[in-house]
């Protein structure tokens, strides 16, 4: 009983964080067709901005939303500075890997300079602990497990039910045709980055509430998010969401039965198998497009 509860809980929790990260990566891929390697840095920056605002005396309920909004701006600016100028280049995917990596490294070192290497922590969403099915858990983690699906559902609603969401899905599929119906393609690219950066920032705030933060805290989640989108298929937004939870459960089960030490190796084993059997990802249809 408690084994099941532990795996279930661990999977839901890790899956939530992975989903928050992976969705942003997938959103940027589907709309612009590039991989954003500064996505992990967005996560770190969101956490540090939230920490700074709390340090300045703002209550968490104010500081966290501000940090998320600031991250939207950061995402927009990053897009405008290191992605937009390159659009139209033949080898854009590779070039953007390099420019976003470079920007990410700059931001990471900037954070190190500003905030120093000492580990920090931000307030939990809810303080306190409880037991579920014989497993002790923090209320913070439960809050994340509840909030994340709500946010992801809201994102799906936005993409599927609003005209602006429709425009984002359209731009993902055919840029010329998007221009010809009068969509503001550059603004939509900026919006995709802004949403992705906000979600990453929020994931950072979630993470900073239960683990110590450091300027490199985003690199492992970025790697996991990459695995998630490769595993789930980069062609949609729902594929990575399902994949994120699946991988969360897989990791939880592995570390329960085989120990933390073996988990990454097993995860990569599964990833390689997936790529061999279904290179487009397990939940993917063959096309690029959102929803």
């Amino acid at each position: 009983m408690s084994a099941l509860a532990e795996i279930l809980f661990g999977g839901l929790f890790q899956g939530s964080l992975y989903a928050m990260m992976a969705v942003g990566l997938a959103l940027v891929w589907t709309t612009i067709g590039v991989f954003n390697f500064s996505h992990g840095v967005f996560m770190m920056l969101g956490a540090y901005i939230a920490w700074q605002l709390v340090e300045l005396g703002l209550p968490a309920a104010v500081a966290f939303p501000i940090a998320v909004v600031v991250m939207a701006g950061v995402g927009w600016i990053l897009q405008a500075s290191v992605v937009r100028p390159l659009i139209g280049r033949p080898n854009i995917v590779l070039v953007v890997v390099i420019t976003t990596l470079a920007a990410g490294s700059l931001i990471e070192n900037g954070a190190l300079t500003i905030w120093g290497p000492r580990s920090k922590q931000i307030p939990a969403l809810i303080t306190g602990n409880t037991t579920v099915g014989g497993v002790g858990v923090s209320l913070h983690q439960i809050a994340i497990i509840v909030i994340t699906p709500l946010i992801l559902a809201a994102l799906c609603m936005f993409l599927n039910r609003t005209r602006l969401g429709l425009a984002l899905r359209a731009v993902a599929q055919n840029e010329d045709a998007s221009h010809l119906v009068g969509l503001n393609v550059t603004a939509l690219y900026g919006l995709a980055f802004a949403i992705a950066a906000s979600l990453a920032g929020l994931a950072g705030i979630f993470m900073g509430g239960y683990r110590f933060m450091s300027p490199v805290m985003g690199s492992d989640p970025l790697l996991k998010a990459l695995i998630v989108v490769v595993f789930g298929g980069i062609s949609s937004i729902s594929g990575p969401i399902f994949a994120a939870y699946l991988i969360g459960f897989f990791e939880a089960a592995c570390s329960y039965y085989f120990g933390l030490y073996w988990t990454p190796a097993l995860l990569f084993g599964v990833l390689i198998l997936t790529l061999m059997v279904r290179p487009e990802g397990i939940f993917a249809s063959r096309s690029r497009g959102l929803a």
Binding site: R163, L166, R169, A170, Q173, D176, V181, L183
Partner: peptide, 22 residues
């Protein structure tokens, strides 16, 4: 445009809504 590539994964209804975007 030539070649009617359009938006392959959108529905006709979606395309019409996009047409009226401006």
């Amino acid at each position: 445009p030539q070649g009617n590539r359009l938006f392959p994964d959108l529905s006709i209804a979606d395309c019409m809504a996009l047409g009226a975007y401006s």
